[in-house]
Design a protein around this nucleic acid. Structure first.
Length: 201
DNA sequence: TGCCTGATTGCCT
DNA sequence: GGCAATCAGGCAA
């Protein structure tokens, strides 16, 4: 296995829209106490600051969403439905609360460990959802605010190198799980057309 | 202080 | 396809 080098913070210092597509095809890695786990990012959603009613930061800063206001390249992890964690990558310059939700991965590193944590046997069911991939990688609230440009939790180019997806390979769609009127009609979800690992077609 | 809801998942029918 | 699980954050009182 070649050495995995975290991508620099400069990549994240752009709008969540741009970062959401720039992250497709990248490798999300967690070098945890149980070993290294990771997968290729195949689905993302952008959350855009105050003008976006679906964004947690739309009503200003609270203790929960504070990481979104921090420097780019950090993790924003929160609990939904009282039991599932969702991992976001903070985007935009410090003070601008934008983030990209990682919704699905194609598992490639530590597959057996991830399947065990998930309690499933199919790689397709391993990381096909924001709550699923956090469980699979062993990511939890303790990673809230973590620096994603350095181990143990980081984003890198995949083994063999990164090649940007063809424009026709990226599908743009509406975001999932938002209330009507909360920005559910905005085309801010992106996924790889040919990937069988996305959460929903 | 109390009530309500959610950037989901998995089990049951 | 429908719905329960489960609890912290956010808001009203």
């Amino acid at each position: 296995m070649q050495r995995l080098t975290p991508l620099p913070a400069g990549l994240h210092a752009q709008s969540a829209c741009g970062l959401a597509t720039a992250l497709l095809g990248r490798l999300l890695v967690h070098a945890g106490p149980d070993g290294v786990s990771g997968g290729i990012i195949v689905e993302t959603e952008a959350y855009l600051s105050r003008a976006d009613p679906g964004c947690h930061a739309a009503r200003g800063m609270t203790p929960r969403n504070a990481p979104m206001f921090g420097p780019p390249g950090r993790a924003y992890v929160y609990l939904v439905y009282g039991m599932h964690c969702c991992l976001n990558v903070v985007a935009a310059p410090e003070g601008v609360p934008e983030a990209v939700l990682i919704r699905a991965l194609e598992p490639i590193l530590g597959l057996d460990d991830m399947l065990r944590r998930r309690g499933v046997s199919s790689p397709r069911d391993c990381c096909s959802g924001p709550g699923k991939l956090c469980r699979a990688l062993g990511v939890g609230l303790e990673h809230n605010g973590a620096d994603l440009t350095r181990p143990p939790l980081f984003i890198a180019d995949p083994p063999g190198g990164y090649s940007a997806p063809e424009p026709g390979e990226i599908v743009t769609a509406t975001r999932i799980g938002l209330r009507p009127g909360a920005g559910d009609d905005l085309p801010l979800r992106y996924y790889l057309k040919s990937s069988p690992y996305v959460s929903r077609r």
